[in-house]
C-alpha cells in the first residue's frame, strides 16, 4: 500500500494552538479552581500534562492531571482485543470540572468510552472535551469544547500526531493511503 505523508502542523503551530486552548479553558471555567485535566491514553496524556502546565503558569496554581485507559469500555471489544493500560486518577472526580484531553477526535466513540469510564469513578461537576485535532466524521452526538485545529479529512486518511514525550517531533501529519 503506497502511503503519502504531508505535514499539517509544525511544532510552533502546535505550541500556539495549545496555548490558545489553555486560555480558552481558563476563560470558560472562570479560572482554574476545581479544574482537573484527564488525558486519554496514550497520546492524550502528554497533551493533558502540557495544558495543565500552561494553565498553571497563567493562573499561578497547580492543576491536577490524570490518565484514563478506555480499553475496558470499548464497544468493539468483542472483535478486537487491546492491551489494557493503567488508569491513574490521583484526585477525587466528584464536583470537579474535568477537561478530557485527546489528540484527535474522529468518530466520537473513544470519547463515549472515556465519558463512561469517568462517570464510573464518581460525579464530576462538569466534563468538557479538548482535542488537538478535530478531523470530522462523527458517528455519535459528541462535540469538543476546545479544538486546537479543525482539519477536514477523508475517511481514507489517517491523522498522525507526533509528540516529543513519546519520541516524536511535535508535528502533525496526514497520511494518505491508496
Amino acid at each position: 500500500m503506497a502511503e503519502q505523508r504531508s505535514q499539517v502542523m509544525d511544532s510552533d503551530e502546535l505550541r500556539r494552538a495549545l496555548t490558545r486552548v489553555a486560555h480558552e479553558i481558563i476563560e470558560k471555567n472562570k479560572g482554574a479552581e476545581r479544574l482537573a485535566l484527564v488525558g486519554v491514553r496514550s497520546k492524550g496524556v502528554p497533551l493533558a500534562e502540557r495544558l495543565a502546565k500552561l494553565i498553571g503558569e497563567i493562573e499561578g496554581t497547580k492543576v491536577p492531571v490524570g490518565a484514563l485507559d478506555i480499553t475496558l469500555y470499548r464497544d468493539d471489544y468483542m472483535t478486537r482485543q487491546s492491551e489494557v493500560g493503567q488508569t491513574e486518577i490521583p484526585f477525587d472526580v466528584n464536583d470537579r470540572n474535568i477537561v478530557l484531553v485527546d489528540e484527535v477526535i474522529y468518530t466520537g466513540r473513544t470519547v463515549r468510552c472515556a465519558l463512561d469510564a469517568l462517570i464510573d469513578m464518581g460525579r464530576p461537576a462538569s466534563i468538557q472535551l479538548a482535542v488537538l485535532i478535530d478531523r470530522g466524521h462523527r458517528e455519535l452526538p459528541i462535540r469538543p469544547d476546545f479544538v486546537g485545529k479543525n482539519l477536514p479529512t477523508s475517511r481514507k486518511e489517517l491523522v498522525d500526531v507526533q509528540l516529543r514525550e513519546i519520541g516524536g517531533d511535535d508535528k502533525v501529519y496526514i497520511l494518505k493511503q491508496d
Binding site: 475496558l72 492491551e83 493503567q86 463512561d116 469513578m121 464518581g122
Partner: peptide
Amino acid sequence: QTALSFKEILGRQIKKVPT
C-alpha cells in the same frame, strides 16, 4: 501486566467495568 492494570479497578469506589 494485564493483572497490574486491573488492580486499579479494585481500588475504585465503583468496582465495575462493562467489558
